[in-house]
Amino acid sequence: MARLVLQRLALLIPTLFGLSILLFLWVRALPGGPATALLGERATPEAVERLNRLYGFDQPLHEQYVRWLGQLLQGNFGVSSRTRLPVLEEFLNRFPATIELTILALVIAVGVGIPLGYVAARYRGRFLDHGTVVASLIGVTIPVFFLAFLLKYLFAVQLGWFPSAGRQSPAMIATHPTGFYVLDGLLTREWDAAWDALLHLVLPALALGSIPLAIIARITRASVIEVQSADYVRTAKAKGLKAPRLRRRVVLRNAMLPVATTIGLQVGLLLSGAVLTETVFAFNGIGSFLADAVFDLDYAVLQGFILFIAVVYALANLAVDISYGIIDPRMRARR
């Protein structure tokens, strides 16, 4: 297992290297180039030229790239043209918010999706099954931002059950040692602060988790149906296994194999979905910041954040691969 982790971490290096080239070229290919972006549309040619000389944009591409890469390796990701703060600092400030949101969304998706898919498979062809299939179809088709607006309007504006925006009520006085607000509240025993942060998370997490939930439910359903008719399930019945053990050890455990892969793929979906959800709920995470950066053509932020997200995505998939090895002994042997 240790070898697998090392192997995958080693693979991360060429992946990030390739991505950095793509990012670098993409930014240079944008109309007007970085200088126009920094100075705005109405910049004078003299200003553009001065800036190009200052930042080295007039040098050959490969030299620029090498310099940029050198800076990245020293931890210098540049400065946001909008907030005038280092990109790394901006990222680290907002990252905990997005992680908190993504984790809760994933918990909802897995915690509801797997039982729902399992129940649908067991009652295959009956009302419960059809209901689940239709609901999951709706879940996959509704765009995240639309569902986010809907949830916000219904539960925050009309019913007032949940707050409509932000990470914590402005009136709440809380200390934030880690930046994970729910965790902070628990650590500092400020229970009301933790509860308040959690309430702020519910609606965005529901909106964000809806598509993964629907996908996980469908894959679980299909997988359980397939496993139920496997030879080894019949053999397990023939040797007299009782229902609880049959369901848990034989059916569910085998049915989880494709589901685990799906969950890994959902992490990417969650990170991209966060851009929309965070914007709707004015949730100050990397998603909403990235959305703003796109509108402002904040190159340093775009480059830096996309690289960071790639690392997070790769690590999340590594975690899924490791879990796959835990569920399926054959995977351990294959490596």
Binding site: D231, T235, A238, R249
Partner: peptide, 16 residues
């Protein structure tokens, strides 16, 4: 009543 099934490749639970 016990059973010995046909195909040894598919009749054992692969994850246990």
């Amino acid at each position: 009543i016990g059973m010995v099934p046909q195909d040894p490749m598919s009749n054992l639970n692969p994850v246990v």
